[in-house]
């Protein structure tokens, strides 16, 4: 047994993934401690979301291991994987609410599907989750009637509805105005602190990263090139990290590259 591995909630070892002949992840290693908030930063299209989708098992790596709570999820069958996913909540970039279902059905999706709770109990739990994200009385609305910020918050409520152990955020502030972005950042930090969840956030918004993170990992050229506390990343000597966090056009990262 590796030293300290019992303290790790998520562990990616030597993960590689190819899409249509294009290598997206190449031997990526990453670990997330129980109860910490890790933020993965990197340029658009560098494989951050792909990494996140490996953690929850939507994508399977071509090679390598993905360990969640000590179990290698790449070896699980569909049933075990579905069971394991009950420990997860995920907020998608565009919230990914189900258009055909009301907010109540969206947020309480897993309760309706898998719990024995009565409608009243579900309604109460959904109202509680919505109030945690600062929403009230919109249970009967359809997602198409909500604004972008509200959709994100409903998505967040859906992700925390089962009080998961691990929560994943895919670009939580993208597409929102700066104020709403900051509200979401505060909300994520607050939920993380109050619900004691392990969280992994993917973003290219440095303000968001500093606010949410206990640790920041930088993904560049298919690998994690730096991991550290927000201060360490901010004051990093690595020229690539430095260029990214300062947002400079000039530097080792080629701006014309995908």
């Amino acid at each position: 047994m590796e030293q300290g591995s019992d303290n790790l909630m998520i562990e990616l070892k030597n993960v590689s993934k190819t899409f249509n002949g294009r290598l997206v992840l190449d031997g990526l290693d990453l670990s997330v401690k129980t109860g910490e908030s890790l933020v993965i930063i990197g340029r658009s299209g560098c494989g951050k979301s792909v990494t996140l989708k490996h953690i929850i098992g939507i994508l399977r790596p071509d090679c390598g291991e993905v360990r969640v709570d000590g179990k290698d999820i790449t070896k699980l069958n569909v049933k075990e994987l579905n069971k394991m996913r009950m420990n997860f909540g995920m907020l998608f970039q565009g919230a990914a609410l189900f258009d055909s279902l009301s907010v109540l059905k969206n947020v309480g999706f897993q309760l309706f599907e898998y719990s024995e709770m009565t409608l009243d109990e579900i309604k109460r739990r959904v109202a509680e989750c919505l109030s945690r994200v600062g929403l009230k009385g919109i249970e009967d609305a359809k997602p198409s009637e909500l604004s972008g910020g509200m959709k994100k918050r409903v998505g967040l409520a859906r992700a925390i509805c089962m009080f998961p152990k691990i929560i994943l955020f895919d670009e939580p502030t993208t597409g929102l105005d700066p104020i709403m972005g900051d509200v979401i950042n505060d909300l994520i930090r607050h939920l993380h602190d109050t619900l004691k969840m392990t969280s992994v956030t993917v973003t290219h918004d440095m303000k968001s990263a500093y606010k949410i993170a206990d640790r920041i990992a930088m993904l560049y050229d298919k690998k994690i090139i730096a991991v550290g506390t927000p201060e360490e990343i901010e004051n990093s000597d690595n020229p690539i990290v430095k260029q990214f966090v300062t947002g400079a056009a000039e530097g080792p990262i080629n701006s014309t590259e995908d």
């Binding site: 989708k53 929850i56 939507i58 569909v78 579905n82 069971k83 996913r85 009950m86 997860f88 909540g89 995920m90 998608f92 970039q93 565009g94 990914a96 609410l97 189900f98 258009d99 999706f109 897993q110 599907e113 898998y114 859906r158």
Partner: peptide
């Protein structure tokens, strides 16, 4: 294309 199919998977639904 709006990731709802993947969202279903993350909510343990096939």
């Amino acid at each position: 294309v709006t990731e709802q199919v993947e969202a279903l998977e993350t909510l343990s639904a096939n």
